[in-house]
């Protein structure tokens, strides 16, 4: 990353922001969280496949990506047809946590061409007056960091796109140029050391 890019990322408003979290009302939200986990159990076909870890790929089939009004609770979220990346990530963390793996909130800065950014601005402007997650050539995005229990090697799952991000994928559209994992200990993503809430630039 060149110096200009570093400057751009450092000035990104969301760099200092905490990852999105859903509000828990009480019993209604508890039921919503159980619905989420039960849905995943039904749709992951654990016994038919040998994989130990099942990413919640069904979320992308279930929900469209788009703007939502925050704050948002679990019981409101599961009724929606459209959610943003912060919600996708929160739902995925809940599902991964049930699978006995370590899961941490993660934030990334992605390359995004101006031609995309213009459209995101208009799409979000219908709801928000300011749109802090969209920069000039970069966007803020929320994902999940997943590791086998006790392992420092993480994989990054992007539930909005249903992909495990490639740690070498930093160029072009959606290339990851910055990563922050909110973990209590340092972690490794490919050759990058991340974690403890410190942004790592790629």
């Amino acid at each position: 990353m060149n110096l200009d890019t570093v400057a751009l990322v450092n000035h990104f408003e969301f760099i200092g922001a905490r990852h999105s979290e859903l509000v828990h009302h009480g019993e209604c939200c508890q039921l919503a969280r159980r619905w989420l986990v039960d849905m995943h159990r039904s749709l992951s076909f654990n016994r038919s496949e040998e994989h130990r870890l099942h990413a919640p790929t069904w979320l992308r089939q279930r929900f469209k990506w788009g703007p939502v009004q925050w704050p948002l609770s679990w019981c409101e979220t599961v009724r929606k047809s459209q959610i943003d990346c912060g919600v996708f990530a929160a739902l995925s963390r809940e599902i991964f946590a049930q699978q006995g793996v370590d899961v941490y909130p993660a934030q990334v800065i992605l390359n995004q061409p101006k031609t995309y950014v213009q459209h995101w601005n208009l799409k979000w402007a219908n709801i928000f007056q300011t749109i802090p997650w969209i920069g000039q050539e970069y966007v803020y995005h929320e994902v999940c960091a997943v590791a086998e229990a006790g392992d420092s090697r993480i994989r990054i799952y992007d539930p909005t796109e249903s992909v495990w991000l490639d740690s070498e994928f930093s160029r072009g559209i959606n290339g990851v140029v910055g990563l922050n994992v909110n973990s209590p200990v340092p972690l490794n993503w490919g050759t990058l050391t991340v974690g403890q809430g410190k942004w790592a630039l790629i």
């Binding site: 209604c28 039921l31 919503a32 159980r34 619905w35 039960d38 849905m39 039904s42 019981c75 599961v78 009724r79």
Partner: peptide, 9 residues
């Protein structure tokens, strides 16, 4: 049906 929260509720 169970595939919506409202059905479950």
């Amino acid at each position: 049906e169970l595939d919506s929260y409202d059905d479950l509720a």
